[in-house]
Design a protein around this nucleic acid. Sequence first.
DNA 1: TGAAGACCTCTAGCTACTAGAGGCTTGTCT
DNA 2: AGACAAGCCTCTAGTAGCTAGAGGTCTTCA
Lengths: 140, 140
Amino acid sequence: MRPFAIGVLSERTGVKVPTIRFYESIGLLPAPERTQTNRRTYDEDTVRRLRFIRHARELGFEVDAIRTLLDLAAHPERPCAEADVVARRHLADIDDRIERLTGLRAEVQAMLDQCTGGQVRECRVIEVLANHGECLSEKH
Amino acid sequence: MRPFAIGVLSERTGVKVPTIRFYESIGLLPAPERTQTNRRTYDEDTVRRLRFIRHARELGFEVDAIRTLLDLAAHPERPCAEADVVARRHLADIDDRIERLTGLRAEVQAMLDQCTGGQVRECRVIEVLANHGECLSEKH
DNA sequence: TGAAGACCTCTAGCTACTAGAGGCTTGTCT
DNA sequence: AGACAAGCCTCTAGTAGCTAGAGGTCTTCA
């Protein structure tokens, strides 16, 4: 396969052109070869690398974590414990966020349940916001 | 009560001093009176308003939504339907995020479950990231 | 009186992109 | 061959909601 342009890379990976340039600028993608007229050219390796990045992003991994994972992927002989750690940390982070959101959900739902639909004067939504004491939990 | 300084407002509301100035700059808080030496002075009204803001932020409302809610809170004679809409939209947003996170959680968990702890060469975490086809869902 | 601490403004940084301006190059159609 | 659109280039700035720091003034307390 011939080297191809950034637009082709974009289409083949589903990552937008400006995003590809952005990834290059932060060092997630290496600076590619250029044509004589200064255009970036890519090869299959970059397609694989970028798909890896995209997929990890879709799963919510942060760029720093992806850097570590990419680094690991490049060294097949190393133990995979480190990848495990990264993924476990991410899982814990997701759990954390789910838990907090679930708590919030309950508060907002409770607020809405109490709303009788009258005037703002007696609106529970506004009132709960104004008075923290009425909340389900003291946590926030 | 005498008017008080920004540090006092900060302590009484739990909102950091730079954040208070930031809220002023984006118009969430009105520009306060100043002393002759240009220091901001606040009163009880601001404490209430800022507590309202803080509480809404803690519940995950966006600044724009808070603007609407504050506006409503200032007009007790209006119907509270609008507050209801804001809160319901927020609830839907939270549900959405929980759902997406739950999906992610399952993917990451599945990835981890398959890891046998050997070398990166046979690491499922790395492999799953490299090959989207192995995912639980096609959604992402 | 002198030093610490609180206050002031302004700028820049965080995450992960996205959008736009202004200007070349490439490809296609006639 | 020439015209014109589409694609590429760089650079800057904007998104949300703050946070941190520089460099300077003012207040408070021992």
